[in-house]
Each structure stands twice: as structure tokens, then as C-alpha cells.
Write a protein that binds this DNA or RNA. Structure first.
Length: 727
DNA sequence: AGCACGCCGACT
DNA sequence: GTCGGCGTGCTC
């Protein structure tokens, strides 16, 4: 008899054995349907063995072995095993989480076999003069003309509404649907459009990366905004594609960076591109996953979840904006896709490129110590760096948060018909409303946070749990009718600018104005078409968009992060401000950046003005070393939540006692309430553990987790976060 | 996670 | 006398 060892989506750190008479070693990585308790479940085979690990009487037979489905290769399993071990997460849960949702439950729908091609009439129409007005139909015709056929997936990638346009083209007889030919190899033919001439540092970086194709090599590509990191990625990707390899490109949030996708598509026309991010529907996600897994997709562009996608011919991994915190999952399976990219590259002997203008200090440190190869792109390709200046302010004396020199600079740009961006990292009208008579503040009853005034919607909103209420007419505590908004958000700045510059066309860009699908794309078009004079927005605007007509960037209320309790706050602020500043002056004129601050002498601003990341990083690393913080130590966080804070703290106290028994070399801090102690009605607390040796910390965490798992965990729900990024 | 089993309060 | 509260324990 043969037995399979199966990982299931249960919060237990163990695998379950089932009998499967005809299973072979070839079935490792395949999905199975198994009986589990009273129900059935989907699992992934991790091992095949001649004898079970438990007594044979307890072993049940598998219900179905899904051999028609795609499977994880041994390479994929190796990465997932490492990640489950390292991040202290049950392997079965990790395996199931790595599958597209459609494959986690019932038998998945068969992959779509239909492909779409031009008919004779369609060819005639597509090659003649433009025959239809509808832009989506036109794009579809263009796409179809260059290829023998498009798959359903590729049709969807032409435009969000491409499906309807396709049906219209079928209806008028220009396009026909047929079944896919046997081999799906059309993506292998890789054509590359002309690349721009590289600068010497770009060329040197590209050569260094290319020299490692086929071997492990980790690179930090450190290049200021506009220095052409993307060209290096694309160049390296072209080389990997020429070698017949697949390329994985990870980006922070694909919805916010459509530009990279457009660039990739333009450079490699005809190359099948799979996209993987949480914005896709389940169906699309599955189709993209399948094309990646089958090898049909040569380039995969995705967010952190794409790190686990099976890629049989992977040859290169690129992590763009590697410092971005969205690569780290902060709930459940707390993996960091950037760090796993390096692991995956090392396991499969291929190069990985981490790119950023402001690398994470962990990454920078690795480059300094030689673990990673540092590649520098010190210069902008077509522009000079922006001139950054500080406007010292006294917040109390400000008119609605805007200093006169900034207003004057905006006026000057309006006169020159250049765009201005006012950056303020708070949405809403004001972060809180206050009663000056009794000191009452609008607080959320479910969270330890303030309710934000949204004047446009006449609401108070909690940005943490989503709770909404109306704006009170008078102070709920003392009845005083004069409630005052305190501080500024995007709405208030938009209103203030409208008063100062009634003739200016002002556009507010934050999560509230871009919630509607397509809204953000429409706004970008208006900005490109110069239908907007002043942009007011949050960090949504910081992510790699080119605004060629932007002359001035004004930054408000950045000071709040200078003196934060989180030791990573200044690193993040520097990265954010650098990114925002980089939006200015990308075309031919140098941009101007004005930062309003109460602390003009702060070293962060000094470093920012001089544009020296290296100097700032050196200062921070010196502090980190002295304080024994990462990257000089390694950390893990035990988080607990309960209905009462005392219960969460008591659980962590007992966890600390257990920890002290287990190890003397791991440092255990005191349990403390979380930064936002109450969130959506749950009280949260945490316990930090730290150790200079990653290996020692890992061994400790494994033993600790095993001890914590026994006994009553019902008083508090808990989870481990290895390498936490927020304390 | 589910879904059982199990031992104590207010209802037909 | 039962319906049901959620505390503890197991699932190959």
C-alpha cells in the first residue's frame, strides 16, 4: 500500500496521512480531496511513503487524486516549506494559501480552450483604414492583427471591457472563436522592441546581472528616481527571455503602477504576460496562474502573492521598489515576498535584482557587507535632480496649513502654466474634531483612534475599522455647539487652495476620490492632458507615475513622523519624501520641492535636501547598531488579541515565562498594548523577542510555538510575526 | 478552522 | 424534563 502525506488548510503544524494505492512519487505537489473529520477537504501532497506515520487503522483512503490539474513542482514545494518554517506558519495552510482561490475548494473549472482569431473579413478591416470608432474594438483588432490568435486571457488584458467588444466583433463576423491548437507555444517566440541607449552605469549594471544568469546572485540596484532602473530590469529580462527562461517581476501594488506593465508590454510585444494581484477576479487569477505554471507565460508581473507562483523555467526575479512595506504580509502568513525572492533565487540558482531609490536598511546593509552586489545608478537619465528647499513654519500661525511662501510658489507655477502637486498624507477634511470648551475629541468607540472628519460626505469616519457616524451638531460631552476641526487633510487643503486660487483647476487624489474602478485612470489622463493645474493627494501619488508637466511639489505635515515611537519611522519618511520629491521636474526643467516643517534643522531634512541616501543610511545604521535594532538583530513579534486587554496581556505574560524557560540567549521584552490597542472592538497586545543570531531565534521560535499551541488558547488568539515591520 | 462532545442555566 | 450556551479537544 502507498500513503500520501497531505498538507491541509488547518491551523495545526502537522501533515495528515491517507492511503492512495496508485500514488507515485510523481504525485508529490498534486491536489487531493480527502475526508477530514466529518467533512472533506482539499489538500496538497507533500510526500509519498510506503508506510504511514500513524497506525494504519487511523488512516483513511483519499477520495480523489486530481491528476488533471497543475501541480507544485519540487522547487515550488521547497520554497513553500522554507517559508512555512521560517515564518512559523503551518505548512498545509501555506500550501493552500499559495493556490488560487478557485483551486482551494471544489474541482476547478477546466482551463478555457477557446481562442479568438480574425476572419478574412476581419483581416481586411484590420489592415485597411480605421473602420471602427470604439477604441476598445480598435485595440482588439490591432492586437489580433499581430498574432495568429488571442486566448481569452489575452483578450481580457487588452482592456477591462474587452469581452464586450470581442462579442461585438464576433457578431459582425470579423472575429471567430475556435479551439486552441495543441501546443501553447506561441509565447515562446520573443520579440524585443528597440531599447533606448543605456548610460554607462545602466550598461554596467545590466552586464553584472547578465553575467549571473544561470547562477545565484543577489543585486541591489540603487538608483535615484528617474535614473532608469526600469531599463536595467527590462534589459536583464530580455537576456533571460533569450535564454528561454521565465521572468518574475514583483511590484508593490500593481493597480497603482500600470506604467511598468505598459512598458513591459511595449518592450516585449507578443510575449505572453501573466499578471497576478489581488485586484483580479478569481477566474482571471486562475487563468493567469495556469499560464505561469504551464510555462506559456514568459513574464509574470505581480504583487507579493506572486512570489509563490509555480514557474517551471524561471530565470530571473526582479523586485521593484524593494523597500516598499507592502511586500510584507502583516496578518496570518506574515511572509516578506522580497526576502523570499532572494531565497527563491538562491534555491534555483538564478539572479535576483532588488531595485529602489531608497533601499530598506536591511537590504542596504546586506549590500554593504557583500551579501548582495551593489549596483549604483547615480544620475537621472534626462533631467537634473529637483531642488529641495525647506519652509520653516510655526504651525499655529499657518493659514489652513499653507505657508505664504508655498502659496506664492503655487501662484508662480500657475502663471507659468505648470502643474503643482501638494502632498499631504491624510485624507478627509480634518483628522479629528474637538470641543474647545471641554476638550472632547471625536474618538472611535471600537478603536483607539480618532474619527476623521469627511466634510464632503458629512461624516466622521474611522480609518482603521471603517466605522462611520454623522457629524454631531454640538459637543456630545458638554453641549457646546462650536466644534472645531483640528489639523488638515486633503479635503481641507483642496478647499483652502480653491479659496486662494479660484481660477485654478484643482484635483484631489486619495482613496476617497479613486475608489470607483477606472476613476484613477481617468484622473491620470486628465493630468497628462494638462486639464488640471493643482493636484492635492496622499501617498497614492508617490508611486512611480510620470507627471511630465509637474514643476512644483509642496509637502505638508511631514513632521508627524519625525518623532514616532516606531524605530523605522524615519527610514520610511525619508523613502516617502524622496519618492514624492521625485515626481517633480522629470521632463526637461528641474523641479522644485518645498517642504513645510517646524524642524528645519532635523538631520532627515538635511539629508533629503542634499539628496544623499548613503549619508542618511549611514546615520541610521549607526543608530540601529547602538540600539541593537535590525539589521543588527533579528526580531519576532507575538501578537495576541482578546475581548479584554488584560486577557491578551496575561496570555503574553505566560508566553514570556515559557520563553524564559526555553532560552537564555533570546531577549524577551515585556508584553505591551499594540500601537492601536483597540481595533474593531478587539484588544490587542504584543511581545517582542530579539536575538543577534537568526539561527538561534529560529530554533527558539519553533520550540516556543509548540509550547504555546498546547493548553487553552481560547482566552486569547495569537499569531507570530517573524521580521515584523511595524511595532 | 470546523465540528464534535460535554456539562450547566431558562423555557415549552 | 429539554434547548442551547461556548469551553476543550480532535481531525490522518
Amino acid at each position: 500500500m502507498t500513503y500520501v502525506r497531505v498538507g491541509l488548510d488547518v491551523p495545526v503544524n502537522q501533515l495528515f496521512d491517507y492511503s492512495a494505492p496508485d500514488a507515485t512519487i510523481e504525485d508529490v505537489g498534486r491536489r487531493v480531496v480527502v475526508p477530514f473529520g466529518k467533512r472533506s477537504a482539499i489538500g496538497v501532497i507533500v510526500e509519498v511513503d510506503a508506510k504511514p506515520a500513524v497506525e494504519a487503522a487511523r488512516v483513511k483512503p483519499v477520495l480523489a487524486l486530481l491528476r488533471d490539474e497543475p501541480r507544485f513542482s519540487s522547487d515550488d514545494l521547497r520554497l513553500l516549506k522554507f517559508a512555512a518554517q521560517y515564518y512559523q506558519y503551518p505548512l498545509g495552510r501555506a500550501l493552500v494559501a499559495a493556490l488560487p482561490t478557485r483551486l482551494r475548494h471544489e474541482a476547478a473549472p477546466p482551463p478555457s480552450q477557446r481562442v479568438y482569431a480574425l476572419t478574412a473579413a476581419g483581416h481586411a478591416a484590420a489592415n485597411g483604414p480605421p473602420s471602427v470608432r470604439a477604441p476598445v474594438r480598435l485595440r482588439l483588432l490591432t492586437a489580433l492583427r499581430g498574432r495568429p490568435y488571442l486566448t481569452a486571457l489575452e483578450v481580457n488584458q487588452v482592456a477591462p471591457s474587452a469581452r464586450a467588444a470581442l462579442n461585438a466583433l464576433i457578431a459582425c463576423g470579423w472575429v471567430e472563436a475556435r479551439n486552441a491548437p495543441e501546443s501553447a507555444a506561441q509565447g515562446l517566440a520573443t520579440s524585443v522592441s528597440a531599447a533606448p541607449v543605456l548610460t554607462s552605469s545602466q550598461a554596467a549594471a545590466l552586464e553584472a546581472i547578465s553575467a549571473k544568469l544561470g547562477r545565484y546572485g543577489a543585486f541591489l540596484l540603487h538608483g535615484v528616481t528617474g535614473s532608469g532602473k526600469t531599463e536595467v530590469y527590462l534589459g536583464a529580462a530580455a537576456r533571460a527571455l533569450q535564454h528561454g527562461r521565465q521572468v518574475l517581476i514583483l511590484v508593490p501594488e500593481i493597480a497603482l503602477t500600470p506604467q511598468l506593465e505598459a512598458l513591459v508590454q511595449a518592450r516585449f510585444p507578443g510575449t505572453v504576460l501573466a499578471r497576478l494581484h489581488s485586484g483580479l477576479g478569481e477566474r482571471e487569477r486562475l487563468e493567469n496562474w495556469r499560464t505561469a505554471q504551464s510555462g506559456a507565460a514568459r513574464i509574470v508581473l505581480g504583487t507579493r502573492l506572486a512570489i509563490f507562483v509555480p514557474l517551471p523555467q524561471l530565470g530571473l526575479i526582479v523586485v521593484d521598489e524593494e523597500h516598499d512595506t507592502s511586500f510584507k504580509q502583516t496578518e496570518g502568513f506574515c511572509y516578506c515576498a522580497r526576502d523570499l525572492a532572494v531565497v527563491r533565487a538562491s534555491q534555483r540558482a538564478l539572479p535576483v535584482v532588488l531595485g529602489s531609490a531608497t533601499p530598506a536598511l536591511e537590504t542596504y546593509h546586506n549590500a554593504q557587507t557583500g551579501r548582495y552586489t551593489l549596483l549604483e545608478l547615480p544620475q537621472r537619465v534626462n533631467a537634473r535632480p529637483p531642488a529641495i528647499a525647506l519652509i520653516p513654519v510655526n504651525r499655529a500661525a499657518l493659514d489652513e496649513g499653507l505657508a505664504p511662501p508655498l502659496l506664492a510658489a503655487v501662484a508662480a507655477r500657475l502663471e507659468q502654466r505648470e502643474q503643482t502637486l501638494i502632498f499631504i498624507n491624510r485624507r478627509g477634511y480634518a483628522p479629528v474634531i474637538m470641543c474647545h470648551a471641554c476638550g472632547w475629541l471625536s474618538g472611535c468607540h471600537r478603536c483607539s483612534a480618532q474619527l476623521v472628519l469627511h466634510l464632503a460626505a458629512r461624516e466622521l469616519r474611522c480609518h482603521h475599522c471603517g466605522h462611520c457616524t454623522g457629524v454631531p451638531e454640538a459637543c456630545p460631552a458638554c453641549g457646546n455647539p462650536a466644534l472645531a476641526p483640528v489639523g488638515q487633510g486633503t479635503q481641507r487643503i483642496e478647499a483652502a487652495l480653491a479659496r486662494h486660487f479660484p481660477q485654478a483647476r484643482i484635483l484631489r487624489i486619495d482613496r476617497d476620490t479613486t475608489r470607483r474602478r477606472q476613476a484613477w485612470a481617468g484622473m491620470r489622463r486628465r493630468i497628462q492632458a494638462r486639464e488640471v493645474d493643482v493636484l492635492v493627494g496622499t501617498q497614492m501619488l508617490a508611486k512611480g507615475h510620470d507627471f511630465p508637466h509637474l514643476g512644483l511639489v509642496g509637502i505638508l505635515n511631514a513632521d508627524g513622523l519625525l518623532y514616532s515611537a516606531d524605530f523605522r519611522a524615519s527610514e520610511r519618511l525619508f523613502a516617502l519624501l524622496t519618492q514624492v520629491a521625485g515626481r517633480a521636474g522629470r521632463a526637461n526643467a528641474p523641479g522644485e520641492v518645498l517642504i513645510q516643517t517646524e524642524f528645519p534643522a532635523h538631520p532627515l531634512y538635511t539629508a533629503l535636501c542634499s539628496g544623499s541616501f548613503a549619508q542618511f543610511a549611514h546615520t541610521l545604521l549607526t543608530e540601529r547598531r547602538a540600539a541593537r535594532f535590525p539589521p543588527y538583530t533579528h526580531q519576532a513579534l507575538l501578537r495576541a488579541q482578546a475581548t479584554r486587554l488584560e486577557a491578551a496581556l496575561a496570555f503574553l505574560e505566560s508566553a514570556k515565562r515559557i520563553g524564559l524557560e526555553l532560552s537564555k540567549s533570546v531577549e524577551l521584552y515585556d508584553p505591551v498594548p499594540a500601537a492601536i490597542a483597540r481595533l474593531a472592538g478587539r484588544e490587542r497586545a504584543q511581545l517582542l523577542v530579539q536575538c543577534a543570531s537568526r539561527r538561534v531565534l529560529q530554533a527558539f521560535l519553533e520550540a516556543w510555538r509548540a509550547r504555546l499551541a498546547v493548553g487553552r488558547a481560547s482566552v486569547a488568539r495569537w499569531a507570530l510575526d517573524v521580521d515584523p515591520i511595524e511595532l
